[in-house]
């Protein structure tokens, strides 16, 4: 019961094999090309609603010059001026017409003396310097989850912003936009602060040095946490992971880390003056990883004690070994 032989057809010669190979290759290439061309050409109808965006915020100034300066003293405004001078002056970073955002830490409605939030003196001086360098506008913002208005007022940051001609932006629910961080594992379809960034050209992070119950320490990198909306407390399950992703999310122009007084115990809220220690240091850097690694030394730690600094360093998000940047050191008696 063998069917009749179909008669002479192609035979498996070498030539025939290459002919078939080429045909198969062409078919694969054609299918792949067609697939790529069709790839989400018409996304599912969204009734005019918007899609998740790329939430990354890159405000780095990539000009040559010192990347870090460490000032010592007690007067925050004077230390800031001296450190910026050692970095080549604020004009290196802020130019005429720039719209500057200051991301402060205003997470708690506690008085400035408790060191849980960014000190208002620093906000006022930074805003003044930006205006003097020609900035068209300066806005100060943070996203405290609990009663934002009282956080800005009781910390003195609101008053400092008003006195120095800076605007204050208090986020509302609509200020956030769902974004997915490319390469991110946690920040996916997550609400990220968006509205106040409209038109902004420079971003400066200003944070105090604090111990942190969960993360070990909260400094300039942890400060970007305030850009997240939603029920962000679930990120506490992977606090190191989220801090590293925040470093991927945000590339600031500058960070200012205030270690005039460091919160050694009971962070990040503190509550008592006894939680603070005079560490008499203020760090200005273009690299938040380096700034935080230096800040860690004020808490009696090194960057190796803080997994997020080690990981951020390994991922090339900054330099955890900050001494290799040869930071400019500005002692109290210098001009």
């Amino acid at each position: 019961m063998i069917p009749p032989d179909p008669g002479p057809g192609p035979v498996a010669t070498r030539r025939e094999f290459f002919r078939r190979g080429l045909r198969a290759g062409a078919a694969i290439a054609a299918t792949g090309g067609l697939g790529a061309w069709l790839w989400n050409r018409h996304p599912p109808g969204d009734f005019g609603r918007t899609q998740a965006s790329d939430p990354r915020k890159d405000f780095a100034v990539r000009a040559a010059g010192p990347r870090m300066a460490i000032a010592t003293g007690r007067d925050r405004a004077a230390m800031l001026r001296r450190a910026l001078a050692a970095m080549g002056g604020i004009e290196r970073f802020i130019g005429r017409g720039d719209r500057v955002m200051l991301k402060v830490n205003a997470a708690f409605a506690t008085p400035a003396i408790l060191g849980a939030t960014t000190h208002p003196d620093l906000v006022a001086e930074l805003a003044r310097l930006c205006r003097a360098a020609g900035a068209a506008s300066v806005i100060v913002t943070d996203n405290p989850i609990n009663s934002p208005e009282s956080c800005f007022e009781l910390t003195g940051i609101g008053a400092a912003a008003r006195a120095s001609g800076a605007g204050l932006f208090v986020p509302r629910q609509g200020s956030f936009r769902a974004g997915t961080l490319p390469g991110g594992r946690l920040i996916r379809d997550w609400p990220v602060l968006d509205e106040p960034f409209a038109g902004v050209t420079k971003l400066i992070g200003v944070a105090p040095v604090k111990g942190h119950q969960r993360a070990g320490a909260s400094m300039t990198m942890k400060n970007w946490y305030g850009l997240l909306g939603g029920r962000r407390n679930q990120f506490h399950q992977d606090i190191d992971g989220i801090i590293v992703e925040l470093a991927m999310l945000v590339k600031p122009t500058l960070v200012v880390l205030d270690g005039t007084d460091s919160m050694m115990t009971n962070g990040p809220t503190g509550g008592s003056l006894a939680d603070l220690k005079a560490t008499n240091t203020l760090i200005v850097a273009t690299d938040p990883v380096a700034a935080d690694a230096c800040g860690a030394t004020l808490l009696g730690k090194t960057f190796r004690d803080l997994p997020y600094l080690v990981r951020a360093g390994e991922m090339g998000l900054g330099t955890a070994d900050f001494e290799s940047l040869h930071p400019a050191r500005v002692p109290a008696q210098a001009s």
Binding site: P43, P44, F47, R49, A52, Q173, F176, D189, G229, G230
Partner: peptide
Amino acid sequence: TGAIRPLTLDEKLGRGGFEAA
């Protein structure tokens, strides 16, 4: 296949940029 779109919670609840919708 996108017959049901992958929504964010914000979009489903009409918040975080979807207040108008």
